[in-house]
């Protein structure tokens, strides 16, 4: 009796609580959309926010409610995930060309002039507040690696010369780096297409750039003249290549005097 009674009391209380709790969780259960769960399982789950929603769960919720603009917003998942989402939702998506980020600057320490030496927080955003960063070029890569820290895929590196570069194999085009770069140097370009790109964002006149950086676009227009497909245009003293027209023939690369087209 000395053992039985306490066991019974504790057991009875536990039983009452257990039944009460299971009843409560049934009554107060938060309704979960089954399709939402399925969609969440399809999404890569890295919560990068490239889709514009608060992580994968947010995108899955928007998709299941039919509020999302498109089934192809997931940049890391790319074509594969978009097709699976479309299948689940019963809609169609076109082909999505895989993209990669590209840092549009080659102004390393040996190439571009520095106006001063920066001692401070290891952050491009902080450094950019001080007279626009250490590089004399107003569009130069600061090289303190805000993009590296922002990248969820470890696809960016600050090279020894002080310029960030993207590993296209690892990049999933989530745009996290695009958003943090204070100099707006990072853009998305098609990953597979054999296109060329101008690695400079400076829109100052050629004579000014020449003094700041050995690899800046001086707007000499040679690339524009040599391009057989009309893909290159020089506006605001900066060459731009239309990836739709570019075939990657490489004629502009050969003719660029400063080697800023690759």
């Amino acid at each position: 009796m000395e053992i039985l009674l306490p066991s019974l009391i504790v057991g009875a209380i536990a039983l009452i609580l257990g039944v009460g709790l299971s009843f409560a969780s049934e009554k107060l259960a938060v309704p979960v959309d089954e399709r939402e769960e399925e969609l969440l399982a399809v999404l890569p789950g890295v919560n990068c926010g490239a889709c514009g929603y608060s992580g994968c769960a947010g995108y899955a919720a928007a998709l299941s409610k039919g509020e999302a603009e498109s089934a192809s917003l997931c940049a890391p998942g790319g074509d594969d995930v978009a097709r699976q989402i479309a299948e689940l939702l019963g809609v169609s998506v076109g082909h999505i060309a895989p993209m990669t980020a590209l840092v549009r600057c080659q102004g390393g320490e040996d190439v571009a002039k520095q106006s001063f030496i920066y001692y401070g927080m290891e952050s491009c955003r902080m450094a950019a507040q001080l007279a626009g960063g250490v590089k004399s070029c107003p569009n130069g890569c600061i090289g303190l690696g805000d993009c590296v820290k922002a990248c969820p895929y470890d696809a960016l590196r600050v090279c020894p010369d002080g310029v960030a570069r993207v590993d296209a194999l690892k990049c999933r085009a989530c745009k996290a780096c695009v958003a943090v770069c204070p100099k707006d140097l990072i853009t998305l370009v098609p990953k597979d297409a054999p296109t060329t790109a101008v690695l400079c964002r400076n829109t100052q006149k050629g004579a000014v750039i020449r003094k700041l950086c050995e690899k800046g676009c001086i707007a000499c227009k040679r690339c524009e003249k040599v391009c057989p497909h009309g893909a290159v245009s020089v506006t605001d003293f900066l060459a731009r290549i239309d990836p739709e027209k570019c075939t990657g023939c490489g004629k502009c690369v050969a003719v660029c005097p400063n080697g800023c087209i690759v």
């Binding site: 009674l5 209380i13 536990a14 409560a24 938060v30």
Partner: peptide, 29 residues
């Protein structure tokens, strides 16, 4: 009444655990 005061800690923790679970369900909702 049964002279089982020594069970206080065990029983109370049990009840508190149940209440917290309940609170969790209510807050989640």
């Amino acid at each position: 009444p049964r002279g089982l005061e020594y069970l206080q800690t065990v029983v109370f923790i049990l009840v508190i655990a149940g209440l917290v679970q309940l609170l969790e369900v209510v807050l989640k909702r």
